[in-house]
Design a protein around this nucleic acid. Structure first.
Lengths: 235, 235
DNA sequence: TCTATTAAGTGTAATAAGTACACTATTAAA
DNA sequence: TTTAATAGTGTACTTATTACACTTAATAGA
């Protein structure tokens, strides 16, 4: 059969909001845009969707291009389709957000893009409507992390309870009583305690844990709500 | 400046999953597709995104075209971008879901499309990947309704507690104790009791309520969780 | 080797939220 | 006036959440 005639075809892009956790705060990875318009300005990593790849394939390609990583947590966020969002030509962009273990990120790859990690509270001015994409992604990661154990994706495979608690406190911008925190986290049955300790953070050392993957997948949908005040839930 | 050269432009469509509640069960509105391919088969209402309209505008246009309704609850669901989802030509489609008061829906408008309401458990075979779109929308409406008071969008502005309870029971496919239900719903402060009763459903009649809009907007983000078993949460 | 320092680890009581459960009230129709 | 059908309401129990402080382990430095 023929193609659909009389319809306008548009450019379709994907943009990736890449989150990492440095042990202290949530960060996102930005690049210096390499072509016009807005060449040299801070931007999300993105690219045009090719004719022979799906959106998921395009976002995975772009994530790998920047970080060298494959098989990481990557979820479609929202599609931004305002007519004037790109001043050059009508371009619709599907934003994805990724959660990566910041230590697996390969610096040498992204040197080509002059990539840098930015603290979420110190994100520079971004091109087009990417500021809005980042805000949407921040709301989404909080929302989802309040209900599902996605934040483990930001940690190495072995982590300590204090590390995990710092991560939750950082994402929800709050403090949590450590007795209540460990009680609830351990009650999920998602964590397995290891014999070894992490001695980096303290003299005494904190026990390493890793995920019980079976329970992790089984309980992914029903986790817990850590947010002290549900009014902070947005979107 | 020039356009982006060397990039392939694609067709972009929107498809609408339109939910209604007939007092007994959740339903979705489908049309008989009017053009090839798949002409005459059951389909979601959709259309191509025009060059001078945003995605939100396109979905509102398509919703109005079928139902005559404007200003109703319409939310972007997901963008479906598999390369072969449309056999004629690569088309990426952004799905939206709408929640409408089924009684406001104008039948005469949609007669052109031979539209019909289908019970969610009796949805016919749909074209392309629209079955997946509907499944995604079903999961999303449950997920969101468990946390936010969106189901009021499916009811007329005046409704009774038994009607509201039937709606929740229908969406979550469960039964709820009516004492506990009314306790929780009324505790939200979202409902205002009216003097008048609905005599249609019973001899005694049930009091009408309507939304306290101020509290509705204020508490939209923090509502309640009606789902008896959170394991049923999907997405 | 003794002491000081630092973060890790642990339990209980009080409060709040959620769940289970059954009878009375109202009204229309027979 | 009796019957039938749905609306409306309260309490006891269980579970979940919150608030809160001391001890332990291990290293570093005296």
């Amino acid at each position: 059969m023929q193609k659909y005639s009389k319809q306008t075809r548009l450019l379709l892009a994907v943009d990736c909001i890449i989150f990492g956790f440095d042990g202290d705060a949530l960060k996102i990875l930005l690049i210096k845009r390499g072509f016009q318009p807005e060449k040299g300005n801070w931007s999300l990593m993105g690219g045009f969707v090719q004719v022979n790849e799906s959106l998921d394939q395009a976002s995975n390609r772009i994530l790998k291009q920047l970080t060298g990583l494959e098989g990481v947590y990557l979820e479609q966020l929202h599609t931004f389709g305002d007519t004037l969002r790109d001043p050059i030509e009508r371009t619709v962009s599907t934003a994805y957000f990724a959660l990566i273990d910041i230590h697996k990120y390969e610096t040498q790859l992204s040197n080509d893009y002059h990539a840098e990690w930015f603290h979420l509270k110190r994100v520079p001015k971004l091109i087009f409507d990417q500021q809005e994409m980042v805000e949407t992604a921040k709301r989404r990661i909080r929302y989802k992390a309040a209900l599902h154990p996605i934040l483990f994706e930001l940690l190495p495979s072995r982590f300590t309870l204090p590390q995990l608690q710092t991560l939750y406190e950082s994402v929800f911008n709050t403090t949590i009583d450590k007795r209540n925190f460990s009680k609830r986290v351990l009650a999920t049955g998602l964590l397995i305690k290891l014999a070894e300790k992490d001695k980096a953070g303290s003299k005494r050392g904190a026990y390493y844990y890793h995920l019980n993957m079976k329970n992790y997948y089984a309980k992914f949908q029903a986790f817990m709500n850590f947010i002290p005040n549900p009014d902070t839930l947005l979107l």
